[in-house]
Design a protein around this nucleic acid. Structure first.
Length: 436
RNA sequence: GCGGAUGUAGCUCAGUUGGCAGAGCACCUGGUUGUGGCCCAGGGGGUCGUGGGUUCAAGCCCCAUCAUUCGCCCCA
């Protein structure tokens, strides 16, 4: 343990990862905005009760993964492990439900879960979160999923699969749970893994989700939820599927897809990738019609999803189309008097739209040129003794090796010409990456 | 909470059956070159993650501990 290292599972994000995060946020604002979603920023700390009441007391998240501690007055606070609960709280507390029938909200930021870190899983991780509140219609389910896939496509991610399932509702799920429990109890329960024998009592649906081969084999012939849901749920799901088929968005029906949080019902979905190791699910969500009321709000239905930004970043980093933006200039100071001149010259260049930097200290030519090379700049501006005497600057094109000397007074003109030349290129890091 | 792998120079890593701490890259100085990338010579840099133990002798063997990482679990 040391004051000079990050906490386990907490990371500093430098380039290029930080740029990837910015890109995800920008794309999210643009795409979600096109569907009528408004950005909502919510606190990171909430009263613990908000999470235990919404996520479910029996879930692993609440039981052993939350950062929970008392504040100075002894009230139990928790660093949010997910965003939905906080958005629901804000929705109810603000009275937004009274001013509009449908509310579409998105949010993003850090979440916290005390888990063992591994690839694609941190203790502080980031999620993009969308919630559509006030609509019970299956069209809302379809739109949410279409929006998610559109967002991923806009990021350039296409090699992903959408998995889809329905969980039934409060009316039909209890009967299914009983049927499922009865089914497993009729078999050799001892063949199930230790976890599943426990799940059989707490949450039998999770047995379907188990990855242990023996459990998988046993649940192979288990009764399927889709055959047990009530008429209303069946109708709802049929419309969702028909809409997805109409839009020709590929998906896989996965009867084993079960959400880990208690509040989900009816439509559930998950976006999975094979490219990032064991933590392959990059986004997940579903319908949660009872949640708002359960938290003390009105009877408002809802559907939404959360998207893991670290996992998306892993996929984005694998793409070959990340081209770094090249700075336009580096001013090499070869004389002690040069840095003063360089500060002013650089300001002139930047005011004309060029990007670059200067050496704050005067150093030898060799080191300066190395620095210019490592920065991948297009031009190296040389300020040495002779240039200072004559009030000029040597401009070396780092690609061609050509060098010209121009008067310091005309540096702004040179910059304008350079800018015009490159009018089609992104300026000042506005788009550090070009999509392919 | 459980299991595997890994901690040696600023970075990437070698290090044989236990016997003087190494390479490449990077950095600094000098030389060569018409003003960088090549080449030559030299140089600075290490509590070998940490603490114990075995031994004449430990980077190497044993125990503990911390950290990183990949899985399990769980989840986005």
């Amino acid at each position: 343990m040391s004051a000079l290292q990050t906490i386990k599972g907490f990371a500093d994000l430098f380039e290029p990862e930080s740029t990837l995060f910015t890109r995800m946020e920008d794309t999210a604002r643009r795409v979600f905005g096109a569907y009528g979603y408004k950005e909502l920023r919510i606190p990171i700390l909430e009263f613990t009760e908000l999470f235990s009441r919404s996520i479910g007391t029996e879930t692993d998240v609440v039981q052993k993964e939350m950062y929970t501690f008392p504040d100075r007055k002894g009230r139990s606070l928790t660093m949010r492990p997910e965003a939905t609960a906080g958005i629901m709280r804000a929705y109810i507390e603000s009275g937004l439900h009274g001013r509009e029938t449908v509310s579409k909200l998105f949010s993003f930021g850090p979440m916290f879960r005390y888990e063992r870190p591994q690839k694609g899983r941190m203790r502080q991780f980031h999620q993009l979160d969308c919630e559509c509140l006030g609509a019970h219609e299956p069209q809302a389910d379809a739109e949410v999923m279409l929006m998610l896939m559109f967002f991923l496509k806009e990021l350039g991610l296409t090699d992903l699969s959408l998995e889809l399932n329905t969980l039934g509702c409060r009316e039909c799920r209890p009967a299914y749970k009983e049927a499922l429990t009865a089914f497993f109890s009729s078999l050799e329960v001892d063949n199930l893994c230790e976890d599943c024998r426990r799940r059989l009592n707490t949450n039998p649906l999770r047995v379907l989700d188990c990855k242990v081969p023996a459990c998988k084999a046993m649940s192979e012939s288990a009764p399927r939820l889709i055959d047990h849901v009530c008429g209303a749920c069946k109708d709802h799901f049929d419309v969702v599927i028909r809409l997805m088929d109409d839009r020709k968005v590929p998906y896989t029906l996965n009867p084993r897809l079960v959400r880990g949080l208690d509040y989900y019902m009816r439509t559930t979905f998950e976006v999975v990738s094979t490219g990032i190791g064991a933590q392959g699910s990059v986004a997940g969500g579903g319908r949660y019609d009872g949640l708002v009321a359960q938290l003390g709000g009105p009877e408002a239905p809802g559907i939404g999803f959360a998207c893991g930004m670290e996992r998306l970043a892993l996929l984005l980093a694998q793409q070959e189309n990340c081209a770094e933006a090249r700075p336009d200039f580096y001013i090499a100071c070869l004389d002690e008097r040069a840095p003063d001149v360089a500060v002013a010259a650089a300001e002139t260049l930047r005011s004309k739209g060029l990007a670059g930097e200067i050496s704050f200290a005067a150093k030898g030519l060799k080191g300066q040129m190395r620095r210019a090379s490592s920065l991948h700049v297009r031009h190296c501006l040389l300020l040495g003794e002779s240039e200072l005497e004559s009030q000029t600057v040597g401009i070396k094109n780092m690609d061609t090796g050509e060098q010209v000397n121009i008067s310091l007074a005309t540096l702004g003109d040179w910059a304008e010409i350079r800018c015009a030349d490159k009018a089609c290129e992104h300026r000042l890091g506005a788009g550090a990456y070009v999509s392919g």
